[in-house]
């Protein structure tokens, strides 16, 4: 379980996170949703210790993040972070060199699934294919938790469909997934839990099937209510 407890974050004088708390369980897809600029990416960065927080605490399976945690949790930012001059093969080799949890068989499987060639240079890939490689480099790790920042933004519809397929396949099964989005439409059938971030705090968090069953509301209905308040 990933526990985010009362974290606060300031950029200069601007308070971006004012005590954000939520949990993400293993085996569930948790969606962090909010308008752009609300601090979703900052939360992800904070979980990965890529940006300092002013107060609060983040625990991964009860422990603060340390070097070994990166074999257990991986963050896939919204843009690829491999060097552009590398080929796909070199990028995969880089991961293999450093991560014990790199699963080569799964990497090859994903490469086939996305219909990509190992010899291609990252800088020569289309936007959609770059997004897929970005995803591949995270998904091929046998980690317990995956964080994905806006995996659907700015790519064509067919790439979106392929990426959506990943969520329903064994590739995320049994893992804890946190994904951020500002556009729920594409994925509302894929997620277990929604955490709504607004104005630096979590205004509501709920299980999607529960609000459908108990309140007869769609995810968007709930978002609308929150926004109208």
């Amino acid at each position: 379980m990933i526990e985010v407890r009362e974290i606060t974050k300031r950029f200069g004088r601007k308070e971006v996170l004012k005590g954000v708390s939520f949990t993400a369980e293993k085996g569930e897809i948790t969606c962090l949703i909010g308008v752009n600029g609300v601090g979703k990416t900052t939360v992800m960065n904070a979980i990965m210790n890529l940006t300092p927080i002013q107060s609060g605490e983040i625990l991964i399976d009860g422990q603060k993040i340390n070097k070994r945690s990166y074999e257990k949790i991986m963050f896939i930012p919204d843009a690829i972070t491999m060097l552009p001059q590398m080929t796909i093969q070199q990028a995969m080799q880089f991961m293999d060199d450093f991560y014990e949890s790199w699963n080569e068989k799964r990497a090859k499987e994903l490469l086939d699934f996305f219909k990509l060639e190992e010899g291609n240079k990252i800088s020569n890939l289309s936007k959609g294919n770059t997004a897929k490689i970005n995803l591949l480099l995270g998904l091929a790790l046998d980690v317990d938790y995956l964080l994905m920042d806006e995996p659907f933004s700015g790519i064509d519809i067919f790439s979106r469909e392929q990426i959506a397929d990943v969520f329903t396949s064994h590739l995320v099964e049994d893992r804890g997934v946190i994904i951020t989005t500002h556009e729920i439409n594409d994925i509302e059938h894929l997620i277990d839990k929604v955490v709504i971030l607004n104005d630096g705090t979590v205004v509501k968090s709920f299980y999607t099937e529960e609000v459908r069953e108990k309140e007869g509301k769609s995810v968007i209905d709930v978002l609308r209510e929150v926004h109208l308040q």
Binding site: G27, T168, E209
Partner: peptide, 17 residues
Amino acid sequence: RRELASKLKINPNTAQR
């Protein structure tokens, strides 16, 4: 349940349920 989830594009937990 996994095939179902993937065919219907739903969360595997939902298929399981």
